[in-house]
Simulated assay, not measured.
Amino acid sequence: MADAARRSMTPEEFFDWQLGQDELYELVDGHPVPRHRMMTGASMQHDRATVNIIVSLGSQLRGTPCRPMTADIAIRTSIKGLRRPDVMVECAPLVPDTYEVREPKLVVEVASPSTTSIDQTRKVEEYKRHPTLAYILLVETLKPQALLYLRAGDAWEIETFEGLEAVVALPAIGAELALTDIYDGLIFPVRRDLAAEEPNA
């Protein structure tokens, strides 16, 4: 790993190198970075939300040209950059024996305490550069909230969804994600009611 980290790789060289590794890596500015290092702080909450999203999308997209995929498949974000979102959806003929998505429509990043900052800044900007992406969805795990970036021509619009009754519409892939489905089985930290703690005047 030390030798690989010192030299810059192309995505093609990276995929050849990744085959000999025991864990998943991303390619950042031409250098392999262990995905688990970027995921420090990931929890059962993160895993449950990710699985819920895949299950929901999988059932809705069955029989269509679109399909969800896991972080085993990468997305190319630059000439020397590859990321592994928690969930992606591609709507194109299946290409066997490839390690990257060709025509993704949706990427989903499920927040962990250590990744929220990079997911909401650098990664979002990288994903925006991909020509076929229609949606970038950021999902919180400490509260029922999601942030959707949706392509509008040459620009991107942002929508915020809060509360278990909210539903994220994804017409470009013929699906939707209800927050009640995303957060099924998750437990949120109890929020202290500061107003209730204030002494009576």
Rank of each mutant, 00 (worst) to 15 (best):
D154K: 08
I79W: 12
V28S: 04
L94P: 04
P34R: 10
H130L: 15
L148C: 11
E90F: 03
H130C: 06
E159T: 01
V51E: 12
Q120S: 12
D72Y: 11
G185Q: 09
E90H: 01
E26S: 04
P113R: 06
V55M: 08
M1T: 04
L170H: 02
T116K: 11
Y183R: 09
E26W: 11
Q21P: 13
L106K: 07
G58R: 03
R37D: 10
E90L: 00
M38Q: 14
A155F: 03
Y127D: 02
V124S: 01
E12D: 15
A175S: 10
G163I: 09
A178E: 00
I54G: 13
A152C: 00
A49Q: 06
R84N: 09
E198S: 12
P68G: 06
R192P: 11
D72T: 09
E100F: 14
H31Y: 07
M88Y: 03
F161D: 05
Y149E: 07
C66K: 08
G153N: 05
A2L: 03
F14K: 07
L137R: 05
A152Y: 00
C91H: 12
K128T: 00
V139F: 14
T64P: 02
D3K: 09
T121V: 01
T132A: 14
T64K: 05
A146F: 01
Q60P: 07
Y99H: 13
E13Y: 02
P131G: 11
G185P: 00
L27A: 08
D47K: 10
M39P: 05
D181I: 06
K80F: 04
T132E: 11
T50R: 14
K128W: 03
V28L: 13
P96Y: 13
S112M: 09
A92P: 06
D16W: 10
S114R: 13
L106M: 04
C91E: 02
V107S: 15
G81L: 03
M9L: 14
L194V: 15
D86G: 09
V55I: 05
A4T: 01
L137T: 04
I75Y: 10
Q60K: 03
V89Q: 13
A152Q: 12
E198A: 14
T132K: 13
V124E: 13
P144V: 05
P171T: 03
P199M: 00
L94W: 04
V110N: 03
Y25N: 03
V107M: 11
G174T: 12
M9D: 01
L177Q: 01
F188S: 13
L194M: 15
L194S: 15
P85Q: 08
R48K: 15
A201N: 08
D193V: 07
G153M: 05
I118M: 01
M69N: 15
E103C: 08
L82E: 12
E176W: 02
R191S: 13
Y99A: 14
H31V: 07
K128V: 01
D72M: 09
E23T: 15
V167S: 10
D97M: 09
I187W: 08
Q60L: 05
L57T: 07
K80D: 13
Q45H: 10
D193Q: 09
E126A: 09
V33C: 04
S8A: 10
P93L: 05
L148E: 08
D29R: 10
L194C: 00
I182A: 00
L106C: 06
D154V: 02
Q18D: 12
S117F: 07
P65R: 01
D16E: 15
K105A: 13
L106N: 12
K80W: 03
T160K: 10
L82V: 02
G163F: 05
